[in-house]
Design a protein around this nucleic acid. Sequence first.
RNA 1: CGUGGCGGGCGGAUGACCGCCUCGGGGCCCAAGGCCGAGCGAUCGGCUGUCGGGAACGUCCUGGGGAGGAAAGUCCGGACUCCGUAGGGCGCGAUGGUGGGUAACGCCCACCGCCCGGCCCGGCGACGGGUCGGGUAGGGAAAGUGCAACAGAAAGUAAACCGCCUCCCUGGCCUCCCGGCUGGGGAGGUAAGGGUGAAACGGUGAGGUAAGAGCUCACCAGCAGGCCGGGCGACCGGCCUGGCUCGGCAAACCCCAUCGGGAGCAAGACCAAAUAAGGGGGCAGCGUUUUUGCCGAUUCGUCGGCCGGAACCGCGGGUCGGCCCGGCCCGCCACCGACUCCCGGGUAGGUCGCUUGAGGCGCCGGGCAACCGGCGUCCUAGAGAAAUGGUCAUCCGAGGGCCACUCGGCCCCUCGACAGAAUCCGGCUUAUCGCCCGCCACGAACC
RNA 2: GCGGGAGUAGCUCAGGGGUAGAGCACCACGUUGCCAACGUGGUUGUCGUGGGUUCAAAUCCCAUCUCCCGCU
Length: 136
Amino acid sequence: MNRATFRPHERINRPEDFRRAFDRRRSASDDALIVYGTENGKDHPRLGISVGRKRIRKATDRNRVKRLIREAFRLNKTELPAGVDLVVVPRHGSLTFVQVSRSLPHLARAVAGRLARDRGRPPRDRDRDRPAGATP
RNA sequence: CGUGGCGGGCGGAUGACCGCCUCGGGGCCCAAGGCCGAGCGAUCGGCUGUCGGGAACGUCCUGGGGAGGAAAGUCCGGACUCCGUAGGGCGCGAUGGUGGGUAACGCCCACCGCCCGGCCCGGCGACGGGUCGGGUAGGGAAAGUGCAACAGAAAGUAAACCGCCUCCCUGGCCUCCCGGCUGGGGAGGUAAGGGUGAAACGGUGAGGUAAGAGCUCACCAGCAGGCCGGGCGACCGGCCUGGCUCGGCAAACCCCAUCGGGAGCAAGACCAAAUAAGGGGGCAGCGUUUUUGCCGAUUCGUCGGCCGGAACCGCGGGUCGGCCCGGCCCGCCACCGACUCCCGGGUAGGUCGCUUGAGGCGCCGGGCAACCGGCGUCCUAGAGAAAUGGUCAUCCGAGGGCCACUCGGCCCCUCGACAGAAUCCGGCUUAUCGCCCGCCACGAACC
RNA sequence: GCGGGAGUAGCUCAGGGGUAGAGCACCACGUUGCCAACGUGGUUGUCGUGGGUUCAAAUCCCAUCUCCCGCU
C-alpha cells in the first residue's frame, strides 16, 4: 500500500544529484513550473526543489512555494512515473496549491516520456551533440 | 462618544483528515565483546554471542515538543572558539553634560543645562519671572591652525561707500556793509543713520558734543575673576570687583578624557575521501671568544689545521594583523636544496560544537526609575537543497453587496498585516492589517 | 551565516562644504547632389531615499533601499 507520504529517501539533497538532473537537459514546463528529469535507478521517483533568490525575493515566499510543491508531490505520487529524479523550479512566487498539484503530474509524465524515447536510441552524449569547435 | 498624537500589549480561535522535523518507548531484528578473513584506513563479511540487558539504518505502532516581535537589517555590545602573549611608543578607530543601571554597550533610567512653542504676571523700554508641552551627538573656540561663496566700505584686535561734522583752498549768486545761500577740491574727526548679508564688535533711557562715540550716568543682557551658601555631581542661588563687550563653525583639522590585540560557529575539534606536479619571486658571516675529539709540528711551554658543540655580536626570515622598538622561534656559505611568499591544482561526505541561558513566570522586599535581591516554580525548536505544512468546516474581526433605512438582519462575496529560526544572548533601527489598554489635546452632547 | 564595496546626465566616469562638469550619445545649423565624417552652438540632473549638523550639504553625520564582490 503506497500511502501519501514523503520520506527522506524520496528527497534529493546532494548537489551532485541536482547537477546530474540539470545536465541531462530534459525538461518540461508550463506557466507555473519547470521540471527537469533524469533516471535514478530506483523503483520510486525522487523530488528536488530549486528556488533561487533572484526569482523569489522573500524567504517566506520561497518556503511556502517549496511546501506547496512537496505537498503536490506527496498527494499525487501514484500518478508519477517511477525511477525518475524530478527537479522542480517554480517560475514565480504567487502559486496556489491547486495550480501546482494539477501541473506537476502532467509535467512529470511529459519528462518521463522524453526519457523513454531517449532510451530507444543510443544515449545522447553532450560532447557528441556539440563537438568542440562547433559552438554557436 | 468621535478625531488626532504619544506610549504599551496581542499577533486570530476550534475541530476533522492527510503529512514534515525532533526526542523517548515498543515490534519486525541480538548489539557490544571474542575469533577468522579482506582493506592504506574509517570500515565491511563470516562464526560465536553464558550472565546481563540491549546500538544504527529502514519500516510499523505509540507518547511529548516544534518560528518571531521583529526570527529582518547586521548598526553597536558581550558570551564562546581559535590565532596568540598584548611590554612600551606612535598611529588608527569609537565614544563624549552629571549621577546611576548593566556582563558590556554607541543601550536604558533619573537629573542638569540649552533650544522651540503655548499661556499668565511684572516693567515706559531693553528684558525678567512663573507654568505646561516638545526637542536635544550636549567636553574644549581667552592651546594652536583653519573656514565664511555671492553681496557688502568692511567677515574679526580691522575697516569710512553713501552720510554727518570741523578746518583750509577755491568758484558762482544776493547784498551799501555786516553777512547769507549754493557748488568743487584737499586735510581730518565720527560707528548715531542708510544700504549688504546667515552673521557687522552690546541694548534701553538720558546727559554730553562741532558731529558723534561706554565719552559719562542709571538700568538690562552678557563676559572674566573672587568670596559665601546649597547639591554626591552636572550645576544652581547670592554678594563684590574688573575692563567696559572680548562673535560663529570642532557631525573642519585638532586638543583633552575614556575604551579598543586580531578573526569569526563557513569559529573550531575529530573521522573519512582526495591530492600534484608545475610556474614565478625572496634571501643572509668563511665574525669573535671558548671547548671535546682527531691529525701534524714541537725548544714539551705550546702552535697550526679539520669535524662538531656552546655563548656573544651581526645579518636574513617568521611570530605581528598600520609602523617602530623590545621579547620569542628558526636559519646563516649551500647559490643545489630546504625554507618562505604568490600563482596554479585537489576535496565539498560524516560526527561533535548545538542549545539550560547574564533563561521564563509568580509572590515578597529595596529603589522616583532603569534595575537589583530573596523564595517558589517551569524546561521551552535544533534543521542542514534546510522541519513547523496542505485541504475543508465552523467561529471571530474588517470591507463590500442585498433587505431594511430606527435598533438591525441575510450569511451572498472578498480579505486576515509585516514576515521564516541557522552558535547563543543584551540593545538599536527598520517593516507591520486590525483589535485592546493608558495618557494628552481638540470637538460634540448631557449633568 | 559572516566580511567588504558602489549608487552623480541616456551610457562610462570626475568632483570630498560655496550652488554640478568631461567624453560618448541626442538636437539644431553649416558643409554635401545625398549620407557619413568634420565644424559651430545647444538640451539633458529630486547627485538612490529620508532625517540631522551648518548661513549654506552631491560633499560631513545617522538611518534606510538597491546592486555587486569575497569567505566553506
